[in-house]
Amino acid sequence: MEYVSPEGLRIDGRRPMEMRKLQAEIGVVAKADGSAVFEMGNTKVIAAVYGPREVQNRSQQLSDQALVRCEYSMANFSTGDRMRKPKGDRRSTEISLVIRQTMEACILTQLMPRSQIDIYVQVLQADGGTRSACINAATLALADAGIPMRDFVTSCSAGYLNSTPLLDLNYVEDSAGGPDVTVGILPKLDKVTLLQMDAKLSLDIFENVMQLAAEGCKAIAEYIREVLSENTKQLEYRRGL
């Protein structure tokens, strides 16, 4: 299968180093403390954050820091064929864990001891790169909820097909079976908080691919910052400041 034509175009018309179109909106769930919808091309994810609030299960309470919980799910209509997926299957448990760990790394949990923060993310439409989109949506929702963070975490994936590193794989490219590197970084601190790959890749190629994914993360961070400052301006305006 030819994923990159000799003319240098991918199947959907992007070049190897290009990301899909980004789109984000803040405050989509009025009831939640913070919420956001994040789109990368046809991948669409909603995130809602509750907290910091009282710990529901006392036994889980931590005396020195906040408890972060995360629940990931996929809407039944998110893929083309409507399928009923059992809640709490392996994959979603794993992704929940990944998102929780990634977000925990940037939330200043020690400022909110004996409290709990809940992050709910749901995939509304899946077209590859759901993991990254969930993390980006969660970051926006956390920021919307006003939870103190070191930096935003942003995430992006990159792959390696037809001997070319490709940024931000869509579903077709993702199912090609090549390596898929998901990277999450703290752009300001320039630190990696998430790095996942489930295939083999030689070290020098891996470095290139990871570099590419990190570039993608920075571009997303740039976009998220814009969205947030636009949102802040709106808030200012509404308060008549």
Binding site: I11, D12, G13, G41, N42, G80, D81, D127, N170, V172
Partner: peptide, 13 residues
Amino acid sequence: GKITKNVREHYLR
């Protein structure tokens, strides 16, 4: 035999 609907992005440059 199964009919599925696939939606794909198509970028114009």
